[in-house]
Nucleic acid binder design. Sequence first.
RNA 1: GUGGAUGUAGCUCAGUCGGCAGAGCCCCUGGUUGUGGUCCAGGUGGUCGUGGGUUCAAGUCCCAUCAUCCACCCCA
Length: 424
Amino acid sequence: MSIKYRKPKGTRDLMLLEMERWQWCESKWREVLARFGYGEIRTPSFESTSLFTRSVGSGTDIVDKEMYTFESKGGESFSLRPEATASVVRAYLENGLTRQPGTVKFYYMGPMFRYDRPQAGRYRQFHQVGVEAIGSSSPVLDAEVVRCATSLFEAVGADDLTVQVNSIGCENCRPSYVDDLRSWAQGKKDEFCDTCVSRVESNPLRLFDCKNEGCQKLLADFKPISEALCDDCKDHHTQFCDTLDALSVRYENDDSLVRGLDYYTRTTFEISAGSGLRQSALCGGGRYDYLIGQCGGPTTPAVGFSAGVERIVRHLYNQEYDHQRSRQSIVDVFVVCMNRQAQQFALQHADKLRSVCRVEIDTTDRGVKAQMKAAVSRESSVVLIVGDDEINNNQFQMKNMETGQQLPVSNEDLIAAVQEVLAK
RNA sequence: GUGGAUGUAGCUCAGUCGGCAGAGCCCCUGGUUGUGGUCCAGGUGGUCGUGGGUUCAAGUCCCAUCAUCCACCCCA
């Protein structure tokens, strides 16, 4: 068969058994997020390009080479969202929530878009579940956000996780550290790898991201950022860690944890799967105390995270595709029809059953035997059979699939009779 | 952007030295006028990813191209 259309590279069709898994996860997560006091927010899938370039930061891979950017007919530049934090911040400001008392807590679930080369656990359209807690600078909130993330994983049975935390300082202490790092690294350009050399100018902190052993050995000579933090940042990080301890969240400090987005301040964290998977990062987040101010709002502290749904599901089931024939949805009542007249009779009279249970009316024109097999595979408890005899007598044959018992049931008694069987 | 592997039925895959396109599962029909996961018999379904080349002959060899997967990179 030659198929005319194919899905765009790096996208997926989500259905059948896998869709059921997603829905199960999503319902668990909504429950947890509500218990942490988060309300859902749904923002547009695309925004003004400048929102992302200014917040995520030019110089990051995400905005430099991974955005789906297009021009509207009015000549304005838009981009599909590569992440959600910028959109949430924009919505927070645009809807006047700055005057909302207390901490504003939003969660989101939805598709994000990045023009990457697809790979295991990496897609061009992927899904994130995440939170943003806006309005508090307390390190206790940082810890609560991390705890919320681990609760999300626990809720769906994901264990074997590693939580890494770090602090990358604030505008008082980070700039001088970055300057020191840059001038130190400039003197050793010959010894770093090519990508590191370009980072020395654009974003020196990212040097710590490099997996090249030679680069890491060089960096070992330079003081880690934890030793360069100002007193306020040190206190913040200490209280953050103390609170995690009090919550019994297991974590490790990692000086090299520098995230790929520009807007983070102080706390950054990442949660990854312990198994040998390549794309092991399941969740990343941190504090961003200047972003809202940069977007034109009042200086407002905030913290959040976002987790990759595809990666979590893969971690849970250790596979992302079901090659087994996936089942169709389960029904309570399956109606076997002998012919087209019977189909019409069935829809007309069994329709009322749909107010109390799940009903499938078979309109495939295949034989009774095949329809009965379909009833079994749909796990129906009751089969109704309609042919010319039943139409003439205004009734259905009702078969209890568990006991095999079958009797005629008049239209008037149908709901009661079906419910009696389903109740058992 | 760079490198590697793989493309044969709806799905999972065989296909030898170049010689008629295959199996299992699924699906449909019958065995049972209108009744089940088992059993038996039969059947539908293929541009062998696509385009060229070599050859009497190409799923098989060569070239190109596309797609998918994997890795680098980056991240979720």
